[in-house]
Amino acid sequence: MATRRSPYWSWSASAFALAGIVVFIFATFGPPASSSGFVTTLKGLLAPVAPEYVASKAHYRAMPGPGSWLMTFVLGMAIGGFLAGLTSRSPVRDVPEIWERRFGPGRAKRYLATFVGGFLLLFGARLAGGCTLGLFISGSTQLAVSGLYFGAVIFTVAMLTARIVYGRALEEGDR
């Protein structure tokens, strides 16, 4: 298996680094979360133009506005991605290779798919109460049944979805 020269860290180095950050966040803030940051971002965008709407909605009332840990955490994540990308040997692509083999190089189709995918991610996360980080990682770290249950469902459904989406590319001998 170790034939591909990977630009990425090993699973163990990545896991120690991420666990260290998660424990740091528990110590200095509380359970880390990122899907809540979308609600905070929206609250910041909508409050100046539609203050009455934002005040009337329970979901916005439940989340802090943009002057908060949640906001700077997601912005920091974008900055971290930028800094890591600058110093990485991994090529940055707008359309993943496996997607290109299955659907061709057209960008519009990929962008539509990630827009729809993003919509489903956040709609589902807000319904469940969190995302991969806020519910699965944070929750399981605290031994929460919600996090373990959510994790089992998302891994299973994502694996089935990927089979349906990439089925033909798989048959054409990806491996």
């Binding site: 990122s34 899907s35 940051g37 979308f38 997601v74 994540m77 993943p96 798919a113 990630t114 729809v116 995918g117 993003g118 919509f119 489903l120 991610l121 956040l122 709609f123 589902g124 996360a125 807000r126 319904l127 469940a128 109460g129 995302c131 991969t132 980080l133 806020g134 519910l135 919600s146 249950y149 959510f150 089992a152 469902v153 998302i154 891994f155 299973t156 459904v157 994502a158 694996m159 089935l160 979805t161 990927a162 349906i164 989406v165």
Partner: peptide, 20 residues
């Protein structure tokens, strides 16, 4: 939590991204 996870899982499998 289950229905939210199913909707989320479809989005994850389709896009390859998470909210973070």
């Amino acid at each position: 939590t289950g229905v939210g996870g199913v909707i989320f899982g479809v989005g994850w499998g389709l896009s390859g991204y998470c909210p973070g």
